[in-house]
Every structure is written in structure tokens, then in C-alpha cells.
Design a protein around this nucleic acid. Structure first.
Lengths: 196, 196
DNA sequence: AGGGCGAGTAGACAGTGTCTACGGCTGTCC
DNA sequence: GGACAGCCGTAGACACTGTCTACTCGCCCT
């Protein structure tokens, strides 16, 4: 189908990406991926000894797309000469936007039971992005003695927001989709009120 | 085994609780639960038409234990005449403590794919606790015009911390287990610095 | 005493992930 | 040019899962 009919390995990963974005994590069966890629159920084994390693490859792609998206958003904000506060805000919105636009992929990326073994490697891939995040937070909080902890706290807040939104709790706690006021409250808490 | 040898329904739920705390979510097979309860694999069907409903019953128990734990912690803090700030902190520590002490159960409780259908009911069960939480936050932030959003933001932060800790990201971002400094940063962000 | 009937058993069915034996095609060397 | 070795994908088996359906056993009620 695609330009890369050779290279079954890449085709399998692409099929997994399609499946997880169209159907969700539950559709990521080994045999289902093989069907979608047009090969027999035993074929993936040549490239991925176990299903988990195949799913880890799919998740790896997801992490790449996430960091690309965040880096792009930050680059855009940086070129427009935005202050650190709004750069952080654009990063935060990009993170939540990714989670909202790719719910299946986002769920897979943090399902440690499906990725066990490759987990640490995937976590490590987000580290450079985290470090630029730390730099921005340090600019906003120059008096902080532990900007890494403050950044981790902010990131955990964003992650929890993404999680609870797909879970539906925010709609229950507040009205509507409910993300916007809660996100604003979180950003105000971590970065100080928007009005400087 | 237990005092309630009758009432297979309760025995099945108890077996599920045992399994999820001892082995994790992956061990929560329908047949495995039936084996642990000492009945055949078809027996649960009389009480739970599908596996998901059985798992939802197990998660329901987990939510009960969680709210019990939080209510207990808050009652203790309230009787010692603590100010709202430290009451919130004790609630936060109880939440994270529960997640750390019952990782399997905590994971199950927020695995919407396993609980679909009963999800809204389970969410709703945490509402009263959330409301007392809102009251405390309103006391700390009397000038806030949307204490519910601020509370949801704080709760999302705690939830994200629990999630990222079991995922291992905190250890990577900071040293050691890494929870304590990040939790402190989160509490300071949402409630103001501890030193008043 | 006998008849329903609820509770649990046991087997079948489709589907899964993993493992193994097998074909067929490729490229290489004499 | 033809034999050969090695890789790639196929196909079947195995144990296991969740769901569905027939069946049986024992208790209660009139």
C-alpha cells in the first residue's frame, strides 16, 4: 500500500499506529496488527520477539510525535519573542492537545504493563524536552532552589489533567468539558497569576 | 475460608481484591478469580454477566477504601485542630499513600477500558469527598472566584504525581524516589508556601 | 411426596500470544 | 550454470482466555 512495501518491520509499526489511533489500545492484538499489515500471524515474530516489543515500538513512535509537537510549539512561541510564562503555557497546551488528539496513543504510551522492559528507554527519550522545560521554569521562578522539582510538579499536573479529562472526571467536577478553567487554575498556581 | 462461605458474590469480589493486590491487574482473569474462589469458571456469570462488571465491583471496593482512608486522615487532622492548609496536605499524603500502598488496585480504579459502563457511577462515588476538598481549598483561597477549578487542578496534580511515580518518571527527573520534593513543590504552588 | 427452580458444573466455541516445523525465494560460490 | 545455504514468511499446534449453552444436583414450597 504505502511506499515502503519492503521493510515489514516499519509496516507493522505503521499498522499498529493506525490501529491504536482508529480503534484504541484494545485493538492492538498481535494477530490484528499482522492482518492489517497483510501478513500471517507469525510474521511479526521475526522482528519483534514478543507482542510487548511491538507495542513498545508503536509507543516509541508516539513519544517521537509528542516531543516533535512540543518542540514545534515551543519553537513557534520562542520565535515570536514570547516570555517564558507564555512559552510554558504553549507547551502545556500542546501537551494536553496531543493527549486529546491521540487518546489511544497517549494511553498506550503510559501503559507500563504493555511496555514493561522498554519503559525506561521510553522515559529517557523525554528527558531533553523536560530539561528545556526546567530552564523555562527556572526563568519564571528565579528564586526557586529546586526548579527541577517545580517542573516535575507542573508536568505531573498536566499529566493528571490529561488523564482525568479522558476519564471524564473534569466534566463531573465542573461543567462542560471543564478543562479550560482547571488548566488556567493549574497554570496560575504553578507560574503565578497571568496578569503580571 | 472466610466467615462468608455462602454468598459467592462477595467471595468473588474478595478473591479479585486479593489477586489485584498480590499479583496486579494482569492477574484479574475471570477464570483465575473463579479458581481463587474455588468455583468453576462459569460460576461468576450468575452474579456478574461479564468480566468487566466483576472488575467494576472490585474497583468499587477500592474506591470505598480510598474514600475511607482519606476521610479518616481528614478526620484525624480536623480533631487535632489543624488549619485548612495542613488538612489539605494530610489529604494529599493520604491519596498518594493509598496509590503507593495499593498500586494494582489504584491502576484498576482508573483503567476506564476495564470498567467501561460502570465508570460514571464510580466517578460519582468520589464526589462528596471532592466537595469537602473544595471547602478546604476555599478556606485557603478565600479570594478565589472558582474554588472548584482550583481543587480540580490540585487533585489532578496529585493524580499525576501518583501516576508518574508508579511509572518511574519522578526517579528519573529528580533523584531517589523523588516524590517528596515534587509533592512539596506542588503543594506550595497550589496552596502557597508552607511558611506563613 | 413430588415438582419446580436457582446455583454451580462442564463442555464448546472463537479468539489470543507464543512456539515450532516447514516451504520458497534470494544471493553466493564452485 | 547449478547446487547450496540462509533468511523470510506461512501454517499448524498448544495452552489459555471470555462468553454461551446444556445439564445436573439439591433445596424449598405447596
Amino acid at each position: 500500500m504505502t511506499e515502503q512495501d519492503r521493510d515489514l518491520r516499519a509496516r507493522l509499526v505503521a499498522a499498529g499506529i493506525e490501529l491504536v489511533t482508529e480503534e484504541g489500545v484494545h485493538a492492538l492484538g498481535l494477530r490484528e496488527i499482522a492482518r492489517r499489515a497483510g501478513v500471517s500471524h507469525g510474521a511479526p515474530r521475526r522482528y519483534f520477539p514478543t507482542r510487548r516489543e511491538l507495542l513498545a515500538a508503536v509507543a516509541r513512535h508516539g513519544f517521537g510525535r509528542l516531543t516533535d509537537s512540543l518542540a514545534g510549539a515551543d519553537a513557534l512561541a520562542a520565535t515570536t519573542g514570547a516570555d517564558p510564562r507564555t512559552r510554558i503555557e504553549s507547551l502545556a497546551r500542546a501537551y494536553l492537545g496531543f493527549a486529546a488528539a491521540n487518546p489511544g496513543m497517549f494511553e498506550l504510551m503510559f501503559r507500563h504493563d504493555l511496555l514493561e522492559g522498554s519503559g525506561t528507554e521510553l522515559r529517557r527519550s523525554t528527558l531533553p524536552l523536560f530539561l528545556t522545560f526546567v530552564g523555562l521554569v527556572a526563568e519564571v521562578h528565579p528564586q526557586s532552589d529546586d526548579p527541577a522539582a517545580a517542573t516535575a510538579a507542573l508536568w505531573a499536573n498536566l499529566h493528571g489533567l490529561a488523564q482525568l479529562r479522558t476519564w471524564g472526571s473534569l466534566r463531573l467536577a465542573t461543567g462542560d468539558d471543564g478543562l479550560e478553567p482547571v488548566l488556567r487554575a493549574a497554570l496560575d498556581a504553578h507560574l503565578g497569576p497571568a496578569a503580571r
